[in-house]
């Protein structure tokens, strides 16, 4: 998945938590940032920004731990363009 996807996700997370120093491989759950409100905002952001719908069976914690895993999720759910 492109760096642009990761960057957009990181920008969103950093905007919510500007005091934190977060990179693309850091586990945002381990850092203690995620509550249910932020989780909802994060899912809405990803769906809106990348024009995808995340099905229930993809709403797993491992898909949202890092910017890397979220970018991979976006990649899986984005239709291939020709």
């Amino acid at each position: 998945m492109s760096d642009n996807t990761k960057d957009q996700i990181l920008d969103f997370v950093r905007a919510r938590y500007p005091q934190a120093d977060i990179d693309e491989s850091q586990d945002i759950f381990a850092l203690g940032f995620v509550n249910s409100l932020f989780a909802m905002e994060l899912v809405m952001f990803i769906e809106k920004t990348f024009d995808i719908t995340i099905p229930n069976d993809e709403l797993k914690i491992d898909n949202f731990r890092t910017a890397n895993t979220m970018a991979e999720l976006v990649g899986r759910l984005t239709p291939a363009r020709v």
Binding site: F29, N35, A39, L59, I61
Partner: peptide, 8 residues
């Protein structure tokens, strides 16, 4: 979903 996103 169950798990962490159930709160959503």
């Amino acid at each position: 979903p169950s798990g962490f996103t159930a709160g959503m």
